[in-house]
Amino acid sequence: MGYFQHPSAIVDDGAQIGPGSRVWHFVHVCAGAQIGKDVSLGQGVFVGNKAVIGDQCKVQNNVSIYDNVTLEEGVFCGPSMVFTNVHNPRSLIARPHEYRDTRIQRGATLGANCTIVCGVTIGQFAFVGAGAVVTRDVADFALVAGVPARQMGWMSAHGDRLDLPLQGSAQAVCPQTGEIYHLEDGCVHREAAP
Rank of each mutant, 00 (worst) to 15 (best):
A132D: 04
G44L: 07
C30K: 15
E184Q: 14
N61F: 14
G119N: 01
D140Q: 01
D163K: 02
F46I: 09
G168T: 06
R90H: 11
W24S: 13
E73S: 07
D140R: 03
R190E: 11
F127K: 07
V138E: 05
F127S: 10
D12Q: 12
M155C: 05
S21L: 08
G14W: 07
E98M: 00
H182M: 11
L166W: 05
A142V: 10
M1S: 09
E179S: 08
T177M: 02
T121Y: 05
Q16F: 10
C30I: 00
A112K: 06
G36Q: 06
V27R: 00
G42S: 02
G18N: 05
T115P: 15
G146T: 01
L164F: 00
G42Y: 04
R106L: 09
Y181V: 09
R95E: 13
F46T: 00
L71Q: 11
D67Y: 08
Q16H: 11
T109K: 15
K58N: 14
F125G: 04
Y3T: 10
A112V: 13
Q124M: 14
T70G: 12
G2Q: 03
L183M: 06
A172L: 06
W24I: 07
A170D: 12
G111P: 03
S91A: 15
A192T: 12
K50Y: 14
A157E: 14
F141E: 05
D163A: 08
E98L: 01
R95S: 11
V173W: 07
L143G: 02
R106M: 09
Q60T: 02
I17V: 09
Q60N: 13
D163C: 05
L162V: 08
S80I: 04
H158W: 15
N88V: 08
P96S: 02
P148V: 01
V188F: 06
S156M: 09
G186W: 00
N61T: 05
G20L: 03
I180F: 06
F141G: 04
V47L: 01
A108V: 04
L164P: 01
A126W: 11
G119D: 04
R22P: 02
